[in-house]
Simulated scan of single mutants.
Amino acid sequence: MKEIVAIVRINMMNKTKKALTEIGVDAFFAQEAFGRGKGLVSSHLLQGAKKGYEEAIELLGEKDRLYTKRMVTVVVPDEQVEDVVEALIAANKTGKPGDGKIFVCPVPEAVRVRTGEIGEKAIV
Rank of each mutant, 00 (worst) to 15 (best):
N14K: 12
E55V: 13
P97S: 10
Y67G: 09
I123E: 01
F34E: 14
V25Y: 03
K93G: 04
I4Q: 04
R9K: 11
R36M: 05
V111S: 10
V81A: 02
L66W: 07
A49N: 05
F103Y: 08
L66R: 12
T115Q: 12
V104H: 08
K38I: 09
I89F: 04
V113L: 14
G116Y: 13
A19W: 01
L46E: 01
L40Y: 12
L59R: 14
K38R: 13
I102T: 06
E120Q: 15
V75W: 01
T21N: 05
D26W: 11
E62C: 15
D78Y: 09
I123W: 03
D99G: 05
L45T: 08
T68S: 15
V113M: 12
V111E: 11
A110K: 10
N92C: 03
N11H: 15
A19R: 00
V84Q: 00
L59N: 12
I4T: 03
A49C: 07
G52V: 01
V111P: 02
E82C: 04
R9N: 05
V41H: 06
A6Y: 00
E22A: 15
K15T: 00
V113A: 11
R112I: 06
K2Q: 12
V85P: 01
E86W: 06
V41G: 07
E54S: 09
P106M: 11
K69G: 02
A19K: 00
M1L: 13
V85G: 00
K93M: 08
P106L: 11
H44C: 14
A49R: 03
E109P: 06
G119W: 13
N92I: 01
T21L: 00
K96C: 06
K69W: 02
R70F: 07
L66S: 07
A90K: 10
G48P: 07
E82Y: 07
A87M: 02
A122K: 08
K101R: 10
S42R: 13
L40F: 14
R70W: 08
L60D: 02
R36W: 06
A56S: 12
N14Q: 12
K51N: 03
K93V: 10
K17H: 09
N92K: 04
E32V: 11
M71N: 05
M1P: 07
K18V: 04
A30C: 10
L45W: 04
S43K: 13
I102D: 04
Y53C: 02
Q80R: 14
F29G: 05
E120H: 14
E79Y: 15
A56W: 03
R36E: 03
G119N: 13
A19C: 04
D64T: 14
A30E: 08
G98K: 06
I23S: 05
A87N: 01
V8E: 00
K17T: 03
K121N: 15
F29E: 05
A122D: 07
G61A: 11
A122L: 10
L45M: 09
S42W: 06
V25T: 03
E109K: 15
V72F: 02
K2Y: 07
R70K: 14
F103P: 00
N14W: 08
V85M: 03
G39Q: 09
V111K: 12
K2N: 12
V81G: 01
V81K: 01
K38N: 10
G61T: 07
L66T: 08
A27R: 12
E79H: 15
N14I: 09
Q80I: 04
I7D: 01
F28D: 02
R114H: 13
G98C: 05
K69H: 10
P97T: 10
T73F: 03
G95A: 10
L46S: 02
